[in-house]
């Protein structure tokens, strides 16, 4: 009998073990924390997990005992229900119920206190944290990222990619331009809603270098699932050199095809929505393309930023991300290649 149970259980246990080990690491996992707040959240999560598992096991055991007991009773001759219990049995049951209720209340109270402290730890010290200030605006369906600075000439705009220095708190001001979005990078912090007309503020910090994926966590329309971003935590030197390169205006094309690409960009539909600093393109409807070639992904972390992907995207992004705001473009293959060449010079 026992061996039969263990046979049934062992694949389940193996699957559970495999699940827990894979779910605990990754570029988008709340169980692989890389910052102080994410650590707090994951500790709370594990506390709840272990306590709830213990409760579940205890309840299952008690349930099993109760079933076993009723079986024993039904095996007996006397099937009449116990209407009048002996007083000592009555007291015993009352004590059991009281103890179980007290235990439940205490457990929930522990959860309450723990989550209170985790919550307070996440929002506290916000005013004191003034390392790097980044303004993130949710759009359908991409993230606009603006690095603020007291020196106006050092302010720049990028999209779907946030670089942060390791070990420095980063303050984020979150906005939304159309509908409610929610900013969520599980490795670094919990979710914060971005609501149109409001400014939400949060901060996070990465303790180790790495690339962490984020995702919109509030359903915001058709391509909500493809509204990702990446956070790249790097050393202070790398971060500073990235900032320096991003504050530069776009590189002017040197080759003939890239120059042709720039001409197509400026005379066609592209510059109705996209901006490239240092050129006449200055619209803020779509992502800023000043340094598009330096980014790792396109289409809000939908695809890696390769020439092939970029040309597919420009030719007909509706096939890749149906319903997105970028209309399809019927460029000749040479013109398309010229635009790609121009995009790839924008490092």
């Amino acid at each position: 009998m026992r061996s039969k149970y263990s046979q049934l259980l062992s694949p389940g246990i193996a699957a559970l073990a495999a699940l827990t080990s894979t779910a605990c690491s990754g570029v988008q996992s709340a169980l692989d924390p890389a910052g102080p707040q994410a650590h707090n959240i994951s500790r709370l999560w594990w506390l709840m997990f272990y306590v709830c598992t213990a409760v579940f096991i205890a309840v299952t055991i008690v349930l099993g005992l109760a079933i076993n007991r009723s079986r024993k009773i039904s095996g007996a001759e006397d099937l009449a229900p116990e209407l009048e219990m002996p007083p000592e049995a009555e007291t015993r049951r009352r004590n059991i119920v009281a103890a179980a209720t007290a235990f439940t209340v205490v457990t929930l109270f522990v959860f309450l206190v723990a989550s209170f402290f985790v919550g307070r730890g996440m929002s506290a010290e916000l005013s004191a944290k003034q390392g790097v200030v980044v303004e993130v605006t949710g759009h359908q369906w991409w993230w606009e990222v603006r690095y603020l600075n007291d020196d106006a000439s050092s302010i720049f705009t990028t999209a779907n990619e946030i670089h942060i220095p390791v070990g420095t708190p980063v303050t984020l001001t979150l906005k939304a331009s159309d509908v409610i979005h929610s900013f969520w990078v599980p490795n670094l912090h919990g979710k914060t809603d971005a609501i149109p007309g409001k400014v939400a503020t949060m901060w996070f910090q990465a303790d180790r270098p790495g690339t962490y994926r984020g995702q919109c966590a509030e359903y915001c329309g058709l391509q909500h699932a493809h509204m990702g971003l990446i956070v790249i935590a790097e050393s202070r030197e790398q971060f500073n050199s990235w900032i320096t390169s991003q504050t530069q205006p776009a590189i002017q094309p040197s080759s003939a095809t890239a120059a042709r690409g720039q001409q197509i960009f400026m005379s066609g539909t592209c510059n109705m929505c996209h901006a490239i600093s240092g050129t006449e393109a200055g619209s803020n409807i779509g992502p800023n393309l000043t340094h598009i070639a330096s980014r790792q992904t396109i289409g809000a972390a939908t695809m890696t930023n390769l020439g092939d992907h970029l040309s597919q995207w420009i030719a007909d992004s509706q096939k890749i991300k149906p319903g997105n705001r970028m209309p399809p473009h019927n460029l000749s293959p040479e013109d398309l290649q010229a635009v790609i060449d121009y995009m790839q010079t924008l490092k």
Partner: peptide, 11 residues
């Protein structure tokens, strides 16, 4: 009604 995959417009 909404058309998601429209053919690219003429040049």
């Amino acid at each position: 009604k909404r058309v998601f995959e429209s053919s690219p417009p003429p040049a």
